[in-house]
Design a binder for these strands. Structure first.
Lengths: 241, 241
DNA sequence: GGTCGCAATATTGCATACAATCTGGGCGAG
DNA sequence: CTCGCCCAGATTGTATGCAATATTGCGACC
């Protein structure tokens, strides 16, 4: 699989980026592509190729890839290169275990800090989710997964702890990857909108209830996955791509 | 402050490191130096200087510094360089808030997975802590802070979730930095050994009690800090170094 | 015919060179 | 004497070149 994806080159085209950090820009574009599954797990991210696509040297690409490796979205092997992460079922479970541990606390913190403007932002977010839910097509599914993640990130940003927010960024990104990998296309993203219920609890100032709804929500997301043990012998993973 | 610390150059001397990753080696040495407060917060980490000390090019130094920036131990400013992090009281609070959220869950998970060999490792760890606690001198204090952190990391590794373990590595490292910055030399590191109590609860299989003791323990650590608001106007931080 | 070994190729690891940007001091005008 | 501008030095950002390592295809030997 080549990564000569028109969407990538297109996003690259605005070279008028100010003196900003180009490595971080490339990191963001690659992350979007990974989370959207435009880049399949296991895909090799050649430094030279990525550099050509974004019209930068390998130096900058390496910085971007290192950043993604820290987030767990890319696996870097010495003298072999960087590959889009291919999380095992075990890793997937750990992602959701981590979220079940962290997100309730975030919900409780957010409940006590919710401002009217936050609520407005949430409402806009929920409308966007509904719109995407109704839409058909793989492209809408991608956007839906992403929007669903944004809800959780919004919650984390309201909680006001930048460390936890960053942890959640990583967990949400990895969740998207896992969902894309193991999600049953079937009952994807729960019939009735659990996000709305969570927001309702937050508005009522009931952080405890919001926390509980959040755990249930995470359970539903994980339950929709097919994490049966293809108890991957390491060589199997090679066959998978 | 220059970083020409003999302990750094000494650690550098074994250049016989196999084909391993030199950037990660440098990162580890720098992290140790930061956590031990051999490198004071705000100290500039010049790429050229670090490179000279470790006898590598700026390329690998940059990789190491980027890694530390991800962990929050180093703050990197574009076109200005990298500096040892100087966490504000607010950041310090967030570190401990995060620990209060995450560590109880880790304790519960660890309680159900504790093996006899784990217990033995814990005992060795506690003995080492006691030894350092009795010892005098700044050097012992450093080692004690570090050993105290190792206890928590050991707990996290037993919990068996590598993602949470990595989060804890970051939180413990930042905690050490915060303690070094804001710790009252006075009642430092609690009179009676709370770690031992936590271990006892774990051995008894009482994860809930271990979790509660852990929260109390974290509260004690934070209570020993002096986080009074020098409500840092950003310009103040410049004055501090 | 199959397997092992070796060489050619490609890719990463690292160092260095050059360009861009920031910092600090000196000089001149007000 | 003070304020502001400008230039020189220093430091980071980026590109490129070379060395080291892994991969792949071919050929020889069993």
């Amino acid at each position: 699989m080549t990564i000569a994806d028109p969407q990538l080159t297109q996003l690259n085209s605005p070279p008028a980026q100010a003196g900003e950090d180009r490595a971080m820009t490339i990191r963001d574009h690659l992350r979007d592509a990974i989370v959207d599954r435009r880049l399949a797990p296991g895909t090799k991210l050649s430094e030279a190729e990525v550099g050509t696509l974004f019209d930068v040297s390998r130096t900058v690409v390496r910085a971007a890839l290192q950043a993604l490796a820290f987030e767990g979205l890319v696996k870097s092997e010495r003298n072999r290169g960087a590959f889009v992460a291919n999380p095992s079922p075990e890793e997937a479970r750990q992602v959701f275990d981590s979220r079940r541990l962290i997100e309730p606390g975030i919900a409780r913190a957010a409940a006590g800090r919710l401002s009217p403007s936050d609520i407005a932002t949430f409402r806009t977010q929920l409308i966007e989710e509904s719109r995407l839910l109704a839409e058909r097509g793989a492209l809408a599914r991608r956007a839906e997964i992403r929007a669903s993640g944004d809800f959780h990130l919004l919650l984390a940003s309201i909680a006001g702890n930048v460390i936890l927010h960053r942890f959640m960024e990583e967990l949400v990104a990895r969740s998207s990857l896992v969902i894309a990998l193991y999600g049953n296309s079937g009952a994807s993203s729960c019939g009735h909108n659990e996000h709305a219920d969570i927001l309702a609890a937050l508005e009522a100032g009931d952080g405890e209830r919001a926390a509980q709804l959040l755990v249930t929500h995470i359970n539903h997301i994980e339950a929709d996955l097919d994490l049966r043990q293809n108890t991957g012998l390491p060589l199997r993973e090679a066959l998978s791509r």
